[in-house]
């Protein structure tokens, strides 16, 4: 499978995601922020984490307006799988491909830690082996991961089973402990934790292996 990986100025988990993709014997394809791409050329897209455009203005805001994202939008509209990790999740929310917004952590500080998560609804493409209610341990590392959505939006998330992952112990004040969500069609998913940092015992855990 060919998996496109977007690169923006300030993306810094690009090589980590590349390693993860290679780990599963898929072929990584770099998608440069200034270029649109042929949506037939890849089978899935991952938007890695980092500090695209230095997190200036708002996290993910500037990256979400780039040419590559207009192709990602087209790609997603065709129902193809898109995963956003951390800053990638923020970019997807900013671009409107995922509902809600990610705001400053409640404690105002950047948090790096391992967090315990529960699968609220499994996704059929990314993490297809995960079961509802299953517990995962993944690292988090973010300053703006507090998920927020208006009340009617939250109701919709529940109604359409769009909540993907929840924190068992809320680290950042996220609404309803949300750590990851899906769009209504379930082909676009985003999460704050980093599965690419948990692929082996020496890394401290290997639950990230479940995501591809």
């Amino acid at each position: 499978m060919k998996i496109g990986i977007t690169r923006f100025p300030g993306t810094n988990c690009d090589y980590d995601v590349e390693k993860m993709v290679q780990h599963f014997s898929h072929t990584p394809v770099w998608l440069w922020h200034q270029d649109k791409f042929d949506i037939q050329s890849v089978d899935a897209v991952i938007i890695p984490g980092g500090f695209s455009y230095g997190d200036y203005l708002r996290c993910g805001a500037l990256a979400s307006r780039s040419p590559v994202m207009s192709s990602v939008r087209e790609f997603a509209e065709k129902g193809k799988p898109v995963l956003g990790i951390c800053n990638g999740f923020q970019i997807l929310c900013e671009s409107g491909l995922l509902p809600g917004a990610l705001t400053r952590n409640e404690g105002l500080k950047f948090i790096d830690d391992w967090s315990s998560l529960e699968v609220d609804n499994p996704n059929s493409f990314f993490g297809s082996r995960l079961q509802k209610g299953q517990t995962l341990n993944l690292p988090i590392a973010h300053g703006e991961g507090r998920y927020w959505i208006p009340a009617e939006g939250l109701k919709k998330l529940h109604d359409h089973q769009q909540i993907w992952l929840k924190y068992k112990k809320n680290p950042n004040g996220s609404m309803n402990d949300i750590a990851g969500v899906m769009n209504e069609k379930k082909n676009v998913v985003g999460l704050m934790p980093h599965p690419e940092r948990a692929l082996a015992l020496w890394m401290g855990g290997q639950d990230g292996m479940e995501f591809l």
């Binding site: 708002r58 805001a61 979400s64 307006r65 900013e94 917004a101 927020w148 959505i149």
Partner: peptide, 9 residues
Amino acid sequence: DFALYNPLI
């Protein structure tokens, strides 16, 4: 509308 603000928040 292009980028400067996020109407959601």
